[in-house]
Structure formats: structure tokens, C-alpha cells
Design a protein around this nucleic acid. Structure first.
Lengths: 152, 152
DNA sequence: TTTTATGCAAAGTATTTGCACGGGA
DNA sequence: TCCCGTGCAAATACTTTGCATAAAA
């Protein structure tokens, strides 16, 4: 049901939680099982619904608390979209360079030459006098599956 | 108290509201006076507080309703930040290419060569198979005034 | 045994809606 | 006059907190 690769990821996340002073518990594991492997943006309630299938006694509050912790550790990141900002995805290495499907919520990190970005940031920093600490680059569109009408 | 240039902008916004089926009223004007000329991100309550100085009887609900209308028309845009997504600024022409001070909330549009962005978008579109409809690029930093400790 | 985690219920926040009155056109 | 706009109060949605119990280390 859960492939070995996914299971290793989940275990890694639980270990990271332990390293940060959290205990390994069934409710947390249920939440991690959902968010660590999903390639879609999920809001707390969606995580709750899915994780409850792994651990029926789960409370929504525990989902909120676990998400908070995972975000703090850097394993989850919040995704801001025109339609709202309650969603989360597994954090990608590096910055918020996200490609998001507005139909199904699938999220990908995009490649392409990102060096251009660094050049642009440096340029704006010089022109504006700002000291830039962070940047977000997000592309919104329709993934190929949704273009073909595959997803519901 | 209000310079002619600013006053013309406010009048333009009120006209745009009228073109969109809204009446010209004192409460709306008070809201527009605040948001049309501010270079800072303001949340609904901040707009309320400031606009109340122009029109003391103003209700918070009217602020929400006016902001909603202005966003719909495209005169205001919501600003998403690590610290929250309740803020608005006067909409800049074109896309969300924002340079935001994390200390004082000042927002600027940035120049620099944005063509790079268009190239990057086209590249990602080709590589990913997505049909990209929109993109957000936001830089977060500290403006020169805040670096010098000018703002409170 | 000691301390953290959990779920429930309650409390906060932020935003939206219902409604009777008042003011624009 | 007619109808939209307004403020108030209430309702709703989302998230956080307090607390007694349960479970991990």
C-alpha cells in the first residue's frame, strides 16, 4: 500500500521531528503520511480528512499543531494563491519557486535557469537601495492533465 | 492638505467606481482617499482607522465592501507576505512584481529587465507542459529608510 | 516516573450576511 | 421617487488556547 520510497520519506520526517524534541506518535505519523507524500496543495482540513483514514481518532487541532511544527522545521511550506493562502506542500529545497496548477492544486518546483533570478534580484537591490532578504516566484497555470480534462 | 495630484487620483478612482455602477458617497470617498494615495500595504482595519479621520461615522463593514469592489475593478491588489495576506495596495499596472519592505510595509513596483521573466515563463511552460496564466514575483527586504532606522 | 501530546470545548480573530434606515441620482 | 449604500448586530469561518487525560521516553 505504501511503497518503500514513500515510507522512507515519512520515516525521515518523523526522525526530523524527533530531533526537534517531538515524540513519535500515531496521530503525528498519520499527518506526516499525508503531507510528506502529497504533490498537491492541501489545507489543514483536507489533511485532517485524509489523515483520519490512517488514524480515525485524529483531532483537527492536532493537524494544526503538527503542520505548525513541520513548517517551523522547514519540512512544509505555506502556498499563497489567488484563491487563498491556507494550503501547504512539502517544502522544496531552496526558495519558493513554484509552479501551481489552479485546477487540481498540483505543485511542482520548476527548473529552468534560475540564475537569471539571482541576477535580477541583485539588479533591483542596487537600483532600489533595498536590502533584499527573500523572494517568491510563483507561476500559476493549468497542468497538462487538467488541460486534457483528466482530473475531476 | 491634499495636493492637487493626489486629489485627481482620488477623483479618478471615484469615477471608476461610478462607471462600475457605484454611487459616489462620503464613506467610499474616505476609503479611497486612504488607499489610493498610500504607498504602504494596509489591512482593512488600518484602512478603517485612517479613513475614519476623514469620515468619523464610517463602519468597518463599508471598508470591507469598498475594498472588495476596488479589487474587483482592479484598482487595489492583495499583497501576500510571509507575515500574512490581509494587506492591500493600489494596483500597479501589469503583474505582481512587487518589492516590499518587511519593516515598514512600503511597496514599490520594480523595474529592472522584466523581459528575463517572460523568457523564463516561456521556458517553464515548454518544459512542464503547463499552460501558464499568471505569475507572481515578489522581493522582500528592508528599504533604505528602515536600514537607517528612520521609520519607527 | 516524568514530561509531552492529544482531543474536546471554549475562546479568539477575521470576514460576511441580514436588515431597517438614510441618502444619492 | 426609487434603489443602492450604510452601519449595526448577528452569523460564519478559521485558528488558537485551556485543560484533564493518555501515551511516549
Amino acid at each position: 500500500m505504501v511503497d518503500p520510497h514513500t515510507s522512507a520519506i515519512i520515516d525521515g520526517w518523523l526522525e526530523r521531528l524527533q530531533d526537534n524534541g517531538c515524540r513519535r506518535t500515531a496521530p503525528r505519523q498519520a499527518v506526516v503520511e499525508v503531507v510528506a507524500s502529497s504533490e498537491y496543495v492541501l489545507n489543514p482540513f483536507e489533511v485532517f480528512e485524509q489523515a483520519r483514514q490512517h488514524y480515525p481518532g485524529l483531532g483537527l487541532v492536532t493537524v494544526y499543531r503538527t503542520i505548525e511544527k513541520l513548517e517551523e522545521i522547514g519540512l512544509l511550506q505555506r502556498v499563497h494563491r489567488p484563491s487563498g493562502c491556507q494550503g501547504f506542500v512539502a517544502a522544496f529545497r531552496g526558495h519558493q519557486h513554484l509552479l501551481i496548477c489552479q485546477d487540481c492544486g498540483r505543485v511542482e518546483m520548476f527548473g529552468g535557469d534560475i540564475e537569471k533570478m539571482d541576477g535580477l534580484v541583485a539588479e533591483v537591490e542596487k537600483d532600489s537601495g533595498y536590502h533584499i532578504q527573500e523572494h517568491w516566484l510563483q507561476l500559476f497555470g493549468t497542468c497538462s492533465e487538467c488541460q486534457r480534462g483528466v482530473n475531476p
